[in-house]
């Protein structure tokens, strides 16, 4: 079947089979390698995307389910100001990741900051548990998200003025 949807702000279409997973479609058809598909069971969080503004694991989602919906991957999100806030916040706090879970952590932070402008430590850690990885130092990560929240709030304040 041919499927049309919005991918990173652009109208796209692709031919898919009923058995195709969304993660495979995004990686193989569209070459979006920022997400990975390690566990194929929605557990490792490496394949997280934003679907209609919500964080979902794309490896357990059948590709045909996204007909007409808006999908944002890390590649698309990296073009936004929010991405710059998060990356700068992480950098200033010294957040170091293994390079495999970066995209999941950034997208998880983005959806959290969309909901809560000043998240608590517990909210941050709960949200970032969606991408379990042995590289994570929660203390630095909390500082990173708080710094990102600060930058985001400052940017939105200046824009509003």
């Amino acid at each position: 079947m041919t499927l049309s949807f919005i991918l990173n702000g652009e109208d796209v279409s692709a031919r898919v089979r009923s058995v195709d997973r969304l993660s495979d479609l995004l990686r193989e058809h569209f070459g979006l390698l920022g997400l990975q598909s390690d566990c194929r069971g929605g557990r490792c969080g490496r394949c997280l995307i934003m679907l209609g503004g919500r964080l979902v694991p794309s490896c357990i989602l059948p590709a045909f389910r996204i007909r007409g919906m808006e999908v944002v991957t890390i590649e698309g999100f990296s073009q936004t100001d929010e991405y710059q806030d998060i990356v700068a916040g992480f950098k200033s706090a010294g957040v170091e990741t293994c390079g495999f879970c970066d995209s999941a952590k950034i997208l998880a932070t983005a959806t959290l900051l969309e909901r809560r402008t000043r998240p608590t430590n517990a909210e941050i850690l709960e949200q970032l548990s969606v991408a379990p990885c042995r590289c994570t130092d929660p203390e630095t990560l909390v500082h990173g998200v708080q710094a990102a929240a600060e930058r985001r709030a400052r940017r939105l304040y200046h824009r509003a003025r």
Binding site: R43, A122, L125, E126, L128, S129, R134, T136, P138
Partner: peptide, 15 residues
Amino acid sequence: YFRYGLEPLDELPPI
């Protein structure tokens, strides 16, 4: 395999 998982970040103590 399905049971195995890392400790959730919000359940870890301060170190």
